[in-house]
Nucleic acid binder design. Structure first.
Length: 296
DNA sequence: GTGTTTGTTATCAA
DNA sequence: CTTGATAACAAACA
């Protein structure tokens, strides 16, 4: 489940290998329903170069030579894996007996393309970029500059690490909403980039129950939550994201923030702070992890 | 066969 | 019109 830190990790790696390299071929392997809208992708992409690769929330934005933009959203299980001309993974996964490889390893282990590969970009110099997406939620499309502007304005709130995400903004929008804080933080229009994992982690770190309504948060709680969101996103970036199941970086390697998760994926286990069991419930249609003792 | 996993959007109700 | 709640999507696994 790539969220901001995972997508940003990929973006930084992409920038290191793909800038200004000519795209020499594009191989699409998408479902029938996608074929029509993607039939124009070849002519929009071939011969182009990426001048810049940026990100907004969980959306990757490739700036093309001709002024258009290629958008790639990984949604739940999307991966971008780059292999150089030797067609070898930088991560150096050694794949032994196939039976012992967990299913999520298959997406990146060994040979690419695999059955989940939806697109393959080839670059001058023979490097290849593989877009894999087991569950097919992800997408790629090319848009004009004006359209991109509209898309970003309409769907994306401030970046968590930006100055725009500050106490004034946060408290203003919080007090206007009847949403539960969990649902509130998942809303990309209010704050861009958090997903299920980092929302649960941020609420635990700031001692706030996910069931609380946004408008019920007190000044100190808002300050605390703001601080913890920034701290956790920064730390997750430092450790190149969280791999719970599918996430891989550009080299196919896992993210290391998984080792720091306090509540996500730990239902029934002891809270690291107080020792009581971590609870799990469903909120905003999502699995929600918290400690009823540490969060009020 | 059932329930679960989640990012985003569509749909519906108030 | 706005806000919020919920279903739907897809594929794999326990």
């Amino acid at each position: 489940m790539p969220e901001l830190p995972e997508v940003e990790t990929i973006r930084r790696d992409l920038e290191n290998v793909l800038i200004r390299r000519k795209i020499t071929s594009l191989d699409l392997r998408l479902g029938k329903h996608n074929l029509k809208e993607l039939s124009f992708l070849h002519e929009k992409i071939l011969g182009q170069k990426f001048l810049e690769i940026s990100r907004r929330g969980k959306l990757l934005i490739f700036h093309l030579l001709n002024g258009d933009f290629l958008l790639i959203h990984l949604k739940m299980t999307g991966q971008l894996i780059y292999q150089d001309k030797k067609n070898k993974l930088a991560g150096g996964h050694s794949l032994g007996k196939k039976k012992e490889i967990p299913s999520f390893e298959k997406a990146v282990g060994g040979e690419l393309p695999n059955s989940h590969t939806r697109a393959i970009f080839s670059f001058q110099g023979a490097g290849k970029l593989f877009f894999n997406d087991m569950r097919r939620f992800g997408y790629l499309r090319v848009v004009k500059s004006d359209d991109l502007k509209i898309i970003l304005e309409k769907n994306y709130g401030p970046e968590p690490l930006s100055q725009n995400f500050n106490f004034t903004y946060f408290s203003e929008i919080l007090k206007k909403s009847n949403l539960k804080i969990k649902a509130f933080l998942l809303d990309q229009k209010r704050l861009a980039g958090l997903g299920n994992i980092y929302v649960d982690e941020s609420l635990f770190a700031s001692g706030i129950l996910p069931q609380r309504t946004a408008k019920s948060l007190k000044k100190e709680e808002i300050r605390n939550l703001l601080k913890e969101i920034k701290r956790i996103i920064e730390k997750a970036l430092k450790y190149r994201g969280t791999t719970f199941s599918d996430f891989r970086d550009l080299d196919g390697k896992k993210g290391n923030f998984s080792n720091f998760l306090q509540v996500y994926g730990r239902p029934g286990q002891k809270c690291f702070k107080c020792g009581k069991a971590i609870l799990k419930t469903k909120l905003a249609g999502r699995g929600t992890h918290y400690c009823a003792n540490c969060q009020k």
